[in-house]
Amino acid sequence: MPVPNDWTLEGKVALITADARGWAAVFAGALAEAGADVVVAGHSAEHVESAAAAVRAQGKRSVTIVGEFPGYAETDAAVDQAVSELGSIDILVNASLNQLGKPTLDTTEFEWNTVMDANAGSAFRWARSAGRKMVAQGNGHIVNVISEMAERGLTNHAPFSASQAAIQQMTRSLSLEWGTSGVRINCIATGWVELNPPPLEEQQKELLVRYLPLRRKGTPEDIATLLIYLSGDFSDFTTGQTIFVDGGAMAHA
Protein backbone atom coordinates (compact mmCIF):
# COMPACT_ATOMS: atom_id res chain seq x y z
CA MET A 1 0.00 0.00 0.00
CA PRO A 2 -0.89 2.34 -0.94
CA VAL A 3 -1.73 0.98 -4.30
CA PRO A 4 -5.47 1.57 -4.12
CA ASN A 5 -7.42 -1.61 -3.54
CA ASP A 6 -9.78 -1.10 -6.44
CA TRP A 7 -7.00 -1.17 -9.05
CA THR A 8 -7.28 -4.90 -9.54
CA LEU A 9 -7.96 -7.20 -12.48
CA GLU A 10 -7.80 -10.33 -10.32
CA GLY A 11 -9.81 -13.20 -11.81
CA LYS A 12 -10.07 -11.60 -15.24
CA VAL A 13 -8.80 -12.92 -18.56
CA ALA A 14 -7.40 -10.50 -21.13
CA LEU A 15 -6.59 -10.98 -24.80
CA ILE A 16 -4.02 -8.62 -26.28
CA THR A 17 -2.75 -8.34 -29.84
CA ALA A 18 0.98 -7.91 -30.24
CA ASP A 19 2.90 -6.28 -33.07
CA ALA A 20 6.57 -5.71 -33.83
CA ARG A 21 6.79 -2.49 -31.80
CA GLY A 22 7.16 -4.56 -28.63
CA TRP A 23 4.68 -2.52 -26.59
CA ALA A 24 2.49 -5.55 -25.94
CA ALA A 25 5.05 -6.98 -23.53
CA VAL A 26 4.74 -3.87 -21.34
CA PHE A 27 0.94 -3.86 -21.56
CA ALA A 28 0.59 -7.61 -20.96
CA GLY A 29 2.96 -7.41 -18.00
CA ALA A 30 0.94 -4.52 -16.54
CA LEU A 31 -2.37 -6.41 -16.94
CA ALA A 32 -0.79 -9.42 -15.23
CA GLU A 33 0.66 -7.26 -12.46
CA ALA A 34 -2.90 -6.08 -11.77
CA GLY A 35 -4.00 -9.72 -11.59
CA ALA A 36 -5.18 -10.78 -15.05
CA ASP A 37 -4.33 -13.92 -16.98
CA VAL A 38 -3.44 -12.96 -20.54
CA VAL A 39 -3.76 -14.45 -24.02
CA VAL A 40 -1.34 -12.93 -26.53
CA ALA A 41 -2.14 -13.10 -30.25
CA GLY A 42 -0.08 -11.90 -33.20
CA HIS A 43 1.81 -12.95 -36.26
CA SER A 44 5.33 -12.56 -34.88
CA ALA A 45 6.23 -15.52 -32.66
CA GLU A 46 9.05 -13.53 -31.09
CA HIS A 47 6.87 -10.64 -29.95
CA VAL A 48 3.98 -12.87 -28.90
CA GLU A 49 6.34 -14.95 -26.79
CA SER A 50 8.03 -11.95 -25.16
CA ALA A 51 4.63 -10.58 -24.11
CA ALA A 52 3.66 -13.98 -22.71
CA ALA A 53 6.94 -14.12 -20.80
CA ALA A 54 6.10 -10.76 -19.19
CA VAL A 55 2.81 -12.28 -18.01
CA ARG A 56 4.47 -15.36 -16.55
CA ALA A 57 7.04 -13.15 -14.80
CA GLN A 58 4.11 -11.74 -12.80
CA GLY A 59 3.04 -15.25 -11.82
CA LYS A 60 -0.04 -15.25 -14.04
CA ARG A 61 -1.12 -17.69 -16.72
CA SER A 62 -0.53 -16.95 -20.39
CA VAL A 63 -1.58 -18.49 -23.69
CA THR A 64 0.05 -17.67 -27.01
CA ILE A 65 -1.66 -17.74 -30.40
CA VAL A 66 0.67 -17.13 -33.34
CA GLY A 67 -0.96 -16.62 -36.70
CA GLU A 68 -2.88 -14.34 -39.04
CA PHE A 69 -6.37 -13.14 -38.21
CA PRO A 70 -7.85 -12.03 -41.53
CA GLY A 71 -11.48 -12.96 -40.81
CA TYR A 72 -14.11 -13.61 -38.14
CA ALA A 73 -13.27 -17.33 -38.24
CA GLU A 74 -9.74 -16.68 -36.95
CA THR A 75 -10.64 -14.09 -34.30
CA ASP A 76 -13.63 -16.16 -33.16
CA ALA A 77 -11.37 -19.20 -32.83
CA ALA A 78 -8.79 -17.24 -30.83
CA VAL A 79 -11.45 -15.95 -28.44
CA ASP A 80 -12.87 -19.47 -28.10
CA GLN A 81 -9.38 -20.71 -27.27
CA ALA A 82 -9.02 -18.03 -24.57
CA VAL A 83 -12.29 -19.12 -23.02
CA SER A 84 -11.52 -22.82 -23.19
CA GLU A 85 -7.99 -22.51 -21.80
CA LEU A 86 -8.38 -19.68 -19.27
CA GLY A 87 -12.09 -19.75 -18.52
CA SER A 88 -13.46 -16.50 -19.96
CA ILE A 89 -12.68 -13.34 -21.93
CA ASP A 90 -13.13 -10.16 -19.92
CA ILE A 91 -10.68 -7.74 -21.49
CA LEU A 92 -9.62 -7.14 -25.09
CA VAL A 93 -6.67 -4.89 -25.88
CA ASN A 94 -6.16 -4.06 -29.55
CA ALA A 95 -2.53 -3.02 -29.38
CA SER A 96 -1.38 -3.97 -32.85
CA LEU A 97 -1.02 -1.39 -35.62
CA ASN A 98 0.16 -1.40 -39.20
CA GLN A 99 1.94 1.87 -39.96
CA LEU A 100 2.42 3.30 -43.43
CA GLY A 101 4.01 6.61 -44.33
CA LYS A 102 3.97 7.29 -48.06
CA PRO A 103 2.97 10.07 -50.45
CA THR A 104 -0.60 9.58 -51.59
CA LEU A 105 0.32 9.76 -55.29
CA ASP A 106 2.50 6.67 -54.76
CA THR A 107 0.05 4.77 -52.58
CA THR A 108 -1.44 1.71 -54.24
CA GLU A 109 -4.96 0.45 -53.81
CA PHE A 110 -3.47 -2.62 -52.16
CA GLU A 111 -1.66 -0.47 -49.58
CA TRP A 112 -4.80 1.49 -48.71
CA ASN A 113 -6.76 -1.74 -48.29
CA THR A 114 -3.99 -3.33 -46.24
CA VAL A 115 -3.64 -0.44 -43.81
CA MET A 116 -7.37 0.00 -43.36
CA ASP A 117 -7.89 -3.72 -42.81
CA ALA A 118 -4.90 -4.29 -40.53
CA ASN A 119 -5.99 -1.41 -38.29
CA ALA A 120 -9.72 -0.64 -38.48
CA GLY A 121 -10.76 -4.02 -39.92
CA SER A 122 -8.74 -5.96 -37.39
CA ALA A 123 -9.91 -3.88 -34.41
CA PHE A 124 -13.52 -4.41 -35.52
CA ARG A 125 -13.09 -8.17 -35.96
CA TRP A 126 -11.49 -8.60 -32.55
CA ALA A 127 -14.13 -6.41 -30.91
CA ARG A 128 -16.90 -8.39 -32.60
CA SER A 129 -15.45 -11.75 -31.61
CA ALA A 130 -14.75 -10.72 -28.00
CA GLY A 131 -17.98 -8.72 -27.83
CA ARG A 132 -20.00 -11.83 -28.65
CA LYS A 133 -18.84 -13.38 -25.36
CA MET A 134 -18.85 -10.12 -23.40
CA VAL A 135 -22.41 -9.18 -24.32
CA ALA A 136 -23.54 -12.69 -23.40
CA GLN A 137 -21.86 -12.52 -19.98
CA GLY A 138 -22.96 -8.90 -19.41
CA ASN A 139 -19.45 -7.61 -18.71
CA GLY A 140 -16.36 -6.73 -20.66
CA HIS A 141 -13.76 -4.05 -21.31
CA ILE A 142 -12.23 -3.28 -24.69
CA VAL A 143 -9.30 -0.89 -25.08
CA ASN A 144 -8.03 0.18 -28.49
CA VAL A 145 -4.53 1.61 -28.37
CA ILE A 146 -4.38 4.00 -31.32
CA SER A 147 -2.39 6.94 -32.59
CA GLU A 148 -3.42 10.53 -32.06
CA MET A 149 -3.41 10.75 -35.84
CA ALA A 150 -7.06 9.78 -35.31
CA GLU A 151 -7.55 13.51 -34.66
CA ARG A 152 -4.53 15.22 -36.19
CA GLY A 153 -3.42 14.84 -39.77
CA LEU A 154 0.11 14.14 -40.93
CA THR A 155 1.71 14.57 -44.33
CA ASN A 156 2.09 11.26 -46.20
CA HIS A 157 -0.21 9.48 -43.74
CA ALA A 158 -3.68 9.73 -45.31
CA PRO A 159 -4.52 5.99 -45.13
CA PHE A 160 -3.00 5.51 -41.69
CA SER A 161 -4.71 8.53 -40.11
CA ALA A 162 -8.00 7.50 -41.71
CA SER A 163 -7.64 4.05 -40.21
CA GLN A 164 -7.07 5.53 -36.74
CA ALA A 165 -10.09 7.81 -37.00
CA ALA A 166 -12.10 4.79 -38.09
CA ILE A 167 -11.19 2.94 -34.89
CA GLN A 168 -12.10 5.99 -32.80
CA GLN A 169 -15.50 6.31 -34.42
CA MET A 170 -16.12 2.57 -34.19
CA THR A 171 -15.34 2.88 -30.48
CA ARG A 172 -17.94 5.62 -30.00
CA SER A 173 -20.63 3.65 -31.80
CA LEU A 174 -19.90 0.36 -30.03
CA SER A 175 -19.97 2.12 -26.67
CA LEU A 176 -23.57 3.07 -27.40
CA GLU A 177 -24.52 -0.27 -28.93
CA TRP A 178 -23.18 -2.29 -26.00
CA GLY A 179 -23.62 0.29 -23.22
CA THR A 180 -26.54 -1.43 -21.56
CA SER A 181 -24.95 -4.86 -22.05
CA GLY A 182 -22.17 -4.08 -19.58
CA VAL A 183 -19.45 -3.78 -22.21
CA ARG A 184 -17.15 -0.75 -22.10
CA ILE A 185 -14.95 0.32 -25.00
CA ASN A 186 -12.44 3.16 -25.07
CA CYS A 187 -9.33 4.28 -26.94
CA ILE A 188 -5.98 5.35 -25.61
CA ALA A 189 -4.41 7.61 -28.23
CA THR A 190 -0.67 7.92 -28.03
CA GLY A 191 1.61 10.63 -29.27
CA TRP A 192 5.28 10.10 -29.84
CA VAL A 193 5.80 6.87 -27.92
CA GLU A 194 8.83 4.60 -28.23
CA LEU A 195 9.74 1.44 -26.39
CA ASN A 196 13.23 2.62 -25.51
CA PRO A 197 13.62 6.31 -26.28
CA PRO A 198 17.15 7.72 -26.24
CA PRO A 199 18.39 9.74 -23.24
CA LEU A 200 16.62 13.05 -22.71
CA GLU A 201 19.54 15.14 -23.90
CA GLU A 202 19.66 13.18 -27.14
CA GLN A 203 15.85 13.39 -27.65
CA GLN A 204 15.80 17.14 -27.17
CA LYS A 205 18.14 17.70 -30.10
CA GLU A 206 15.03 17.09 -32.18
CA LEU A 207 12.94 20.21 -32.75
CA LEU A 208 9.69 18.27 -32.50
CA VAL A 209 10.57 16.92 -29.07
CA ARG A 210 11.32 20.42 -27.81
CA TYR A 211 7.96 21.48 -29.26
CA LEU A 212 6.10 18.99 -27.05
CA PRO A 213 4.88 20.70 -23.85
CA LEU A 214 6.49 17.94 -21.75
CA ARG A 215 9.63 17.92 -23.91
CA ARG A 216 10.17 14.19 -24.07
CA LYS A 217 8.99 11.14 -25.93
CA GLY A 218 6.66 8.80 -24.11
CA THR A 219 7.05 5.12 -23.35
CA PRO A 220 4.51 2.28 -23.14
CA GLU A 221 4.93 2.46 -19.36
CA ASP A 222 3.44 5.96 -19.51
CA ILE A 223 0.11 4.49 -20.57
CA ALA A 224 0.21 1.15 -18.74
CA THR A 225 -1.75 2.27 -15.66
CA LEU A 226 -4.40 3.94 -17.82
CA LEU A 227 -4.76 0.64 -19.65
CA ILE A 228 -5.34 -1.10 -16.29
CA TYR A 229 -7.95 1.52 -15.35
CA LEU A 230 -9.85 1.10 -18.61
CA SER A 231 -9.68 -2.71 -18.27
CA GLY A 232 -11.22 -2.84 -14.80
CA ASP A 233 -14.73 -2.73 -13.39
CA PHE A 234 -13.85 0.46 -11.50
CA SER A 235 -13.94 2.39 -14.79
CA ASP A 236 -17.48 1.25 -15.61
CA PHE A 237 -18.81 4.78 -16.15
CA THR A 238 -16.09 5.54 -18.71
CA THR A 239 -16.99 4.46 -22.22
CA GLY A 240 -16.81 5.68 -25.80
CA GLN A 241 -13.85 7.91 -24.98
CA THR A 242 -10.47 8.52 -26.51
CA ILE A 243 -7.95 9.48 -23.87
CA PHE A 244 -4.82 11.08 -25.26
CA VAL A 245 -1.50 10.46 -23.54
CA ASP A 246 0.87 12.45 -25.66
CA GLY A 247 2.99 14.85 -23.65
CA GLY A 248 0.56 17.66 -24.45
CA ALA A 249 0.76 17.50 -28.24
CA MET A 250 -3.01 17.64 -28.71
CA ALA A 251 -3.36 20.70 -26.50
CA HIS A 252 -0.94 22.67 -28.64
CA ALA A 253 -2.09 25.29 -31.11
Binding site: T171, R172, S173, S175, L176, G179, P213, L214, R216, G218, T219, D222, I223, L226, S235, F237, T238, T239, G240, Q241, I243, F244, V245, D246, G247, G248, M250, A251, H252
Partner: peptide, 15 residues
Protein backbone atom coordinates in the same frame (compact mmCIF):
# COMPACT_ATOMS: atom_id res chain seq x y z
CA UNK B 1 3.05 11.91 -19.70
CA UNK B 2 -0.48 13.27 -19.99
CA UNK B 3 -1.11 17.00 -20.15
CA UNK B 4 -3.71 19.28 -21.67
CA UNK B 5 -6.16 16.41 -21.93
CA UNK B 6 -9.76 15.85 -21.00
CA UNK B 7 -10.50 12.73 -18.95
CA UNK B 8 -14.15 12.11 -19.79
CA UNK B 9 -16.18 9.91 -17.47
CA UNK B 10 -19.77 10.21 -18.63
CA UNK B 11 -21.23 6.80 -19.30
CA UNK B 12 -20.78 7.33 -23.02
CA UNK B 13 -22.72 10.62 -23.21
CA UNK B 14 -20.29 12.52 -25.40
CA UNK B 15 -19.72 9.49 -27.62
Amino acid sequence: YMTGEMFIVDGGGLA
